[in-house]
Amino acid sequence: MHPLRIERLVYRWPGAERNTLEIGALSLASGESLFLFGPSGCGKSTLLSAIAGVVEVPKGAIRVADQDVGAVHGGARDRFRVDHIGMIFQVFNLIPWLSAIENVLLPCTYSRHRRVRAGDNPEGTARRLLSELGLADPSLASKPANELSVGQQQRVAAARALIGKPDLILADEPTSALDEAAKAAFVDLLARECAEAGTALLFVSHDRSLERHFDRGVDFLALNEGGA
């Protein structure tokens, strides 16, 4: 089973003159972490959207957990996404008025698959994840998300992506709002947790200094042969 396998992906934004993505092949094995680097605006986020099934992709180009993303439509795609993919964004990952622990548990409310895989006690699992990510303080876990620092918020987002052991985690520059020390610590923790859970990690950033934390690094410009 491959958490992610991309073959001959061509994608063009509706109305655009050139193809945004033209990727020959890219795949990840279970538990593997991949660092995908490239300058801003080169199409990295579009690739993540394509993998997550947010944009319409041609059939057969992207397979997540051996399932063709392009063949799933509508609401089924949203359910498919939450079943197999955890996502971490740059900033504002959390619902501000939910507590940290509630934010972590969100995928379990929308996905039976994730809930089952989170164990008998999803809340206990969420607390364990938070403490492993350095948020052991119970008062932090019950605080509304908007009262947490940016670093804490990103770690809560990581815990949310990890809960229920999805096949793949997509991280879109999650460290861009963090300072240098926090960046390294965050990436280190994330990579380690993914490895432990057997979750593949696709980490996108323009900051090559983080590359050393990952199993391998790929230059997006080289990967995206014909893209913008």
Binding site: G74, G75, L106
Partner: peptide, 16 residues
């Protein structure tokens, strides 16, 4: 908007 995007990322369909 951000809230809805987050909800979608964790599996909420537009219908939901």
């Amino acid at each position: 908007r951000r809230e809805f995007a987050i909800l979608r990322s964790v599996g909420a369909t537009p219908a939901r």
